[in-house]
Design a binder for these strands. Sequence first.
DNA 1: GCCGAAAACGCAACCGAGTAACAAAAGATT
DNA 2: AATCTTTTGTTACTCGGTTGCGTTTTCGGC
Lengths: 211, 211
Amino acid sequence: MGDEPGLRERKKQRTRQALSDTAIELFLKRGFDQVSVADVAAAVEVSKPTLFRYFPTKEDLALDRIADHQGEAARVVSGRTAGQSPLGALRAHFHERLEAHDPVTGLNDNAIVRAFNDMLYTTPSLLARLVRYSHRDEELLAGALEETGGSGGLTARLAAAQIITVHQRLAEENWRKLASGRTVADALPEAHADADRAYDLLGAGLMEQYA
Amino acid sequence: MGDEPGLRERKKQRTRQALSDTAIELFLKRGFDQVSVADVAAAVEVSKPTLFRYFPTKEDLALDRIADHQGEAARVVSGRTAGQSPLGALRAHFHERLEAHDPVTGLNDNAIVRAFNDMLYTTPSLLARLVRYSHRDEELLAGALEETGGSGGLTARLAAAQIITVHQRLAEENWRKLASGRTVADALPEAHADADRAYDLLGAGLMEQYA
DNA sequence: GCCGAAAACGCAACCGAGTAACAAAAGATT
DNA sequence: AATCTTTTGTTACTCGGTTGCGTTTTCGGC
């Protein structure tokens, strides 16, 4: 019953990791569009078809590093402490991530993370792929919300869509702050305030402002 | 000072139209991925580079027909009657479009429109391109909302993002209804109810349900 | 330790989207 | 009619992604 991965599996993991690492390194150094998949394959000493056996598209090659965040929002809702509301849990979690300078919040000035975010937000095809990822996130979140017995399926889907969208815009806003040269320390209080503003809006609706 | 379009301009318009029409016809008949841009160019008796001088990507070629809806939400807000709230104007407008069976609502069972929507929602690259269109829509709407003096820039952007997202989900929901074989007449009342539900949610927030 | 089945890989050729360079044609201008 | 400008066609190329096929590598049972 020795259930260790086995040699084959370990090699695959290593190849996969090498591809992702090398790709990101090259992308950050020369720019996403200035690096061909053939370049990456050559650098890892692997054939082009092999590369595509690991990653379905060039974009996935670049986004692998953030793919494990899949379903985070759903997990936060499902795993919230008793007596906590879904929205409350999400809000608290976002503030936590902000405090931890989690790259997903857009608020992180590690050089590599910043370069990565810059690449993300300035490369249309990556942004498009990212949208597909968040679409999956949205479905998962909708599922989790429906579990709470809150309301019908449509309501859950609408709520999930709004929440995921707002997260994206908050991250984008934070990235913009840093892109204009500010430091994390400087922008952090504002980021918290923005998040509160966003969650107040999500919770209480747009009526006060726009009706 | 005769300012009529001139022969050259007229020819260009006609070529552009022919490209879009022929492309959509072929796409609907054989499927987006089963038609190459070379096929379209050949059918219009135009060279491939010429085609790309009119449409930057294959996707734009397919989406040209719906491109004129750009900025509709923003126009509704800017052009609302005095005393009407932005949210109220958008809600009323959506109900109107629903009643008119406007394709943008997803609720239209004309054979061609349905085939077009099916193509849209089942072709990832088209969906991705559509996302970019709505991103522009969102910016325009955010601008219009800011004009109303409602609130700060971030609030306007968040509100715009939520509104556009909700529109998309409503259209998707309506498309789903028809895709499962129902008729417009049958689904229309539900679609109105869904829209009201969505706008209630937008206006009053998610608090009642999820907090 | 050996051997057969699977899995993974490399190679080479291919397809389709999109672009560049330059020459040819057609509309506009005087 | 001669000229200038805009648009077009041709050819050839790059790059992302796929396919077919033969070869190597690992795994499992013996």
